[in-house]
């Protein structure tokens, strides 16, 4: 009685549930790996840009570099670019007061920040729903399979363990697959949510510090 025979011998609804769960598991692992790569890259780029920024490079140079390499720029670099662009544009106009200038700069940075955060957080919700729902889907398959095996038992005069056991084992496979899908998804979701949060804090504090630097330049 191998696992494969258990799967192939299950009833159609249970097999359907298993297929859904397998698909969910495949996609969740796909997103897990994708997120691992993008988050690691974003973290590296952020650290690199912070190092460049705080090592005292000229702001115009940095801006020029960010514009030239827009395709490969990191999130923090894009935030910086949009803020600095807004700042230089407004500054050339005569008769703007400092408050309005800083407000518009901050708004521009805020918009880019939100766009970047949305990119980082994408498909995290998918992991969360796989983690919370797939155990229930697996349980549904199990309950269905056990119901069927008990109904079949009613037709047998003498019920022995060997009549019930294969049906229940078949049904339990569905729960096992559901848990297989759910556990990594939940762990990955928690991990990634924490990582994204830390990145968001880094972006926020950079925005504030950069606004201060720009404000000092105006005076």
């Amino acid at each position: 009685m191998s696992v494969l025979s258990l799967i192939s011998g299950a009833s159609l609804p249970v097999q359907l549930v298993m297929a859904i769960l397998l698909l969910a598991s495949l996609f969740s692992w796909y997103y897990i790996f994708l997120k691992v790569f993008t988050l690691r890259r974003t973290e590296k780029q952020t650290a690199e840009f912070e190092r460049q920024f705080w090592s005292g490079a000229d702001l115009n140079d940095l801006f020029q570099r960010a514009v030239n390499a827009r395709d490969s720029a990191g999130s923090l670099e894009r935030i910086f670019e949009s803020g600095f662009r807004e700042f230089t544009k407004h500054r050339r106009e005569p008769g703007t007061d400092v408050g309005a200038l800083m407000d518009s700069t901050r708004r521009a940075m805020r918009a880019t920040y939100q766009r970047e955060m949305d990119k980082l957080e994408s498909s995290l919700s998918f992991l969360a729903s796989v983690g919370s729902v797939s155990p229930y889907v697996g349980l549904l398959g199990t309950v269905w399979g056990i119901m069927n095996s008990f109904r079949g038992l009613a037709n047998v005069g003498q019920a022995t363990l060997s009549h019930v056991a294969p049906g229940i084992a078949e049904a339990l496979i569905a729960t096992a697959i559901g848990l297989f899908a759910a556990i990594p998804a939940v762990v990955a979701y928690n991990r990634f949510a924490g990582d994204v949060n830390r990145l968001a804090i880094r972006f926020d504090s950079f925005t504030e510090e950069f606004s201060n630097i720009l404000q000092r330049q105006v005076h």
């Binding site: 996609f27 692992w29 897990i32 790569f37």
Partner: peptide, 26 residues
């Protein structure tokens, strides 16, 4: 390397790894 190229490479790598993971499970 542009973000698009990096992204598509990541996607292919992630898909392959996810598939390998499931083969391992099985």
């Amino acid at each position: 390397m542009s973000t698009h190229a990096i992204h598509s490479r990541d996607e292919a790598l992630a898909g392959g790894l996810a598939f390998a993971m499931h083969v391992l499970f099985l």
